[in-house]
Amino acid sequence: MVLKSKDLLGLKDLTAEEIEYILDTAKAMKYVITSNNKRTPHLQGKSIVTLFYENSTRTRLSFELASKYMSASSANINSSGSSVAKGESLIDTGKTIDMMGTDVIVIRHPQSGAPHLLAKHVKASVINAGDGMNEHPTQALLDMFTIREKKGTLRGLKVAIIGDIYHSRVARSNIWGLTKMGAEVSLSGPATLLPPKMEMMGVKIYSTVHEALINADVIISLRMQLERQKKALFPSIREYSRFFGLDENRLRLAKKDVLIMHPGPINRGVELTSAVADHEHSAINEQVTNGVAVRMALLYLLTRRGINEAAD
């Protein structure tokens, strides 16, 4: 099997089979990360560039280590201190990177659809590492990988996503991915932070966090950005955590073996208490490891696309 597209722009465009295939490949990659010799030849002779127009620590590092563990040549471009800061257009920047022989461009961008624009104009594969409010497919893949590892399957699981859904690309990618894989997704967050007509994406929306949490197998808590308060989207952090924050009491509404996840970085005491973040059922730290595995799988699958296409 090969991935249909040269790019990974979002889970909206992937089939359930493709997602399954990526997750299976990531399983093999996880052995590499946990072994003593973190070096495989999968990406030998391949060149990976990360192009980040937004700050990022874990996603960027995760991609960089994923490339290095598989022997790729990798390089980073920061939007500040590069030609991007001089006003170069995204397409021009992309073409420049393309012409240096790059196989994969990993892009994070504050505007939704930027990776799609880039992908149309470069030969290299483009991986979306987060675009505006649209998608963050590698995060959702690592979330699904984590759930599948812990629960054995995604089918039939009840997954509650709590918080600022409106601005969350993590939520959107998870919704596309989880619903394709047969999970039942429920959402809850302040009404001002729920995008219109999201129920048409096949999810249930609850106005109280309690309803969303009842019998949940998995909880994905989202980061609440403090700046949103200034735009009158919610009154205060205090009120937000009172009505939507996860604490041990609310956790009891979910299934006993509920899995707690968060894309990070977490605001302790805002979207979840420390007791929840550090709970024995919390997978927040393991998500990070799985992130490297999933990204290794994707880099591998996208770079071998051209080579094995005929054979497949």
Partner: peptide, 13 residues
């Protein structure tokens, strides 16, 4: 336009 398409595309409506 704010609606299902903007939600799907992650664009502000």
């Amino acid at each position: 336009n704010e609606g299902y398409t903007s939600t799907m595309l992650g664009l502000k409506g």
